[in-house]
Amino acid sequence: MDKFLFLVGEGFKNMWRFKLTTLTSVFSIFMTLYLIGLLFTIGENSQKLIIYLRSKYKIEVFFKQEVTDQQARQLTEQIQKIPGVRSATAIVRANAAQIFKRQFGEDILTILDANPLPASCVVNISRTQNTAVDISPIIDSIRQIDGVDEINFQGRLINRIEKYYDLLFKAIVGAAVIVLLVTVSIISNTIKLTVYVRADLVKALKLVGASNMFIKFPFIIDGVLQGLMGSVLASAALYGTITAGNHLIANMTNRIRISSDIYTISFWLISVAVLIGMIGASRASAKMLK
């Protein structure tokens, strides 16, 4: 027990004895993990934003005059089955007259003695895909359905949003992969550095007959603590950034809000940093023991 307490104590003391290297290591861990967290939050929110925008995509399909309400419902069911379509709602002729009255304040039946409005349907696009929604195949499929007269949709706007989202998504994934690789390398190397500057301690311990585990243990504790400190700081900074970002946005609009599961992100950041700290310290000290 005394040996164990000594080794744990050594892990803590080592950090204090080598303040500058520890500080450098913790700072680089903090910076890289903060960047990772930030990228993750941007990615998460851009996806939520695109889901919101997709929910606003609307295709209006007008059926030919001879299409009855019953047929309109059947055609709507047919449209619903097209890949990429989330929902399709039939608007029968009577409903169309009610909508006209709501929008223009006049009863078309009173004016014309008959209802000239065709049956139609409103199509919503599927919104949970990560990849960009290509609306053209959906439009083509609808156009091929017998009984369809006219299709209205915001084609250019949808295409533009999808194109930029696609680019942003690829950029975020690419940046996240690069930053993650750099993070692993930086954390591992800075922790190695903190181990290498203690070469004299390793030498002294070897000469007095310390086992490899005895020598490695304080370094592992040290590596874990550095990872823990860096990642806790990164999580706190991320929380602060999200809060400040929301505060700024709230001053401009109350429709948008940065949402983030900070606890889950923090959990992953801390787990990754602790693991890398442990492995990095273990490998670096093992290398010196050869």
Binding site: F18, D200, K206, L207, G209, S211, N212
Partner: peptide, 24 residues
């Protein structure tokens, strides 16, 4: 075997010209 070395060194005391004391 490598694991025997610490056991051997526990019975040896070493003194060097350069002292090898830990400065911290």
């Amino acid at each position: 075997k490598n694991r025997h070395i610490p056991r051997i060194r526990k019975n040896i005391g070493m003194i060097f010209q350069s002292y090898n004391l830990l400065s911290d």
